[in-house]
C-alpha cells in the first residue's frame, strides 16, 4: 500500500534538516555515494537542502573494482550532469594481494575491499562526518542505530554505548579520535524510496530495470556475468534471462530477480507485491545471522 504524498513531504523535510545539521556542525563532511537508489535519493535531497547554493561537501565512492560496469558509467554520467565533486577510493593493497570475492571468502573480501577501504578513505581525507543512505527498515541492527551515530577510534560502532538521541536535538560534538555517521534516510522504507523517485523523476541506475542479461544460477540465486573475470563451472554457459536488481553492489555478490518491470511505476507495483526484504538478494549478509552488526563493529558503514 502506498502512503500519501504528505508522508514523503514530511520525510523529505526531516531529511533536509538532518543534512543541513551534518553540513553545518562538522568541520569536514563527506557524502557516501554508492550509486544505488538510496544514494540517488540522498543526492537529490542534498541538492534540495542547500539550494540555491551548491552541495557544500564532496561525495565519496568506495570502488571495490567488482562493481557492475553500468554502475560506474552511471556514476560518471551523474557526476558530469550535476557538476559534483566525487572522490573514488580503492584499497590498492587489496588489489595487489588479489583479494577477490571467489577465492578470498566473502567476509574477508568485504572486510578488505569495503570496510578497510572505507576506513582508509575517511582517514586519508580527515573527514569527521560521513553521511550515508542507510535505512532502519533494511536490517535488524540498523533498526537500533541512531541518526547521528558515533564511531569510536578505528571507526568502530559500539551498539552498547550509543549516545542517547532525543527530540530533534542532535549532538554533533566529537571527542578526540571519534567520528560521526549520519543517516538522513533512517525513517524511510524501500517503498518510500521508490515512491519518491517516481514523484520527483530522479534518475536511477538502468540495472534496476528489467532487461535480458547473461546470468548463471548459484544455489537459489541468479548471478549476472558482468565480465570475463567471473569463474564459470566446467561446461557452464551463461543464459539470457529477463532480470533486474533490487539492490546494487559487487556484481558477483548481488543476486538478480526475474522481472518484467522496466519503469519506476512498474517497479513500485512490484515492490508492493513482492514483500521480500531487499537484503535477501545480498550474498554478504546472509552468511550468518547478525553479520551486519559484526561488520559494523569493525567499521563497516
Amino acid at each position: 500500500m502506498l502512503g500519501s504524498p504528505q508522508i514523503l513531504q514530511m520525510l523529505e523535510d526531516e531529511s533536509i534538516e538532518i543534512l543541513r545539521e551534518a553540513a553545518a556542525a562538522f568541520r569536514k563532511p563527506v557524502l557516501l555515494y554508492s550509486i544505488g537508489k538510496d544514494s540517488s535519493v540522498l543526492l537529490h535531497l542534498a541538492r534540495k537542502a542547500f539550494y540555491p547554493g551548491p552541495i557544500p561537501f564532496p561525495m565519496l565512492h568506495v570502488d571495490t573494482t567488482w562493481k557492475f560496469r553500468e554502475m560506474i558509467s552511471f556514476r560518471d554520467q551523474i557526476v558530469k550532469e550535476y557538476g559534483l565533486n566525487l572522490l573514488v577510493h580503492t584499497n590498492q593493497a587489496g588489489v595487489d594481494e588479489k583479494v577477490n570475492p571467489f577465492t578470498s571468502g566473502i567476509s574477508e573480501y568485504t572486510r578488505v575491499m569495503k570496510t578497510v577501504a572505507l576506513r582508509q578513505a575517511l582517514d586519508e581525507h580527515g573527514f569527521d562526518v560521513a553521511i550515508g543512505g542507510s535505512r532502519r527498515d533494511e536490517e535488524r541492527s540498523r533498526a537500533k542505530e541512531r541518526i547521528f551515530s558515533v564511531r569510536e577510534s578505528g571507526h568502530r560502532w559500539d551498539p552498547r554505548q550509543q549516545r542517547p538521541e532525543l527530540w530533534r536535538t542532535y549532538n554533533p560534538r566529537l571527542a578526540p579520535g571519534q567520528s560521526m555517521r549520519v543517516f538522513p534516510l533512517s525513517d524511510w522504507t524501500e517503498l518510500d524510496v521508490w515512491h519518491y523517485i517516481y514523484l520527483n523523476e530522479i534518475p536511477v541506475n538502468p540495472l534496476y530495470f528489467a532487461k535480458e542479461r547473461l546470468v548463471v544460477t548459484r544455489g537459489q540465486q541468479l548471478i549476472m556475468v558482468d565480465d570475463e573475470r567471473y569463474p564459470l563451472l566446467e561446461n557452464e554457459k551463461p543464459e539470457l534471462r529477463q532480470i533486474r536488481f533490487r539492490t546494487l553492489g559487487c556484481y558477483p555478490l548481488t543476486a538478480a530477480v526475474e522481472s518484467t518491470a522496466n519503469s519506476v511505476k512498474e517497479i513500485l507495483d512490484e515492490v508492493m507485491e513482492v514483500k521480500l526484504s531487499e537484503r535477501a538478494t545480498r550474498l554478504i549478509d546472509g552468511d550468518k545471522e547478525d553479520s551486519m552488526e559484526k561488520k559494523k563493529s569493525e567499521g563497516y558503514f
Binding site: G3, R136, S141, A143, K144, R160, S186, E293
Partner: peptide, 20 residues
C-alpha cells in the same frame, strides 16, 4: 535486534519500525 538482546531475551536499546 541486537545479539546481546537475543541472548538475554530482553530489549536493551530503542528499536525503530515503520508500519502502515
Amino acid at each position: 535486534g541486537l545479539e546481546a538482546e537475543r541472548e538475554q531475551g530482553i530489549t536493551i536499546d530503542v528499536a525503530y519500525r515503520s508500519m502502515f
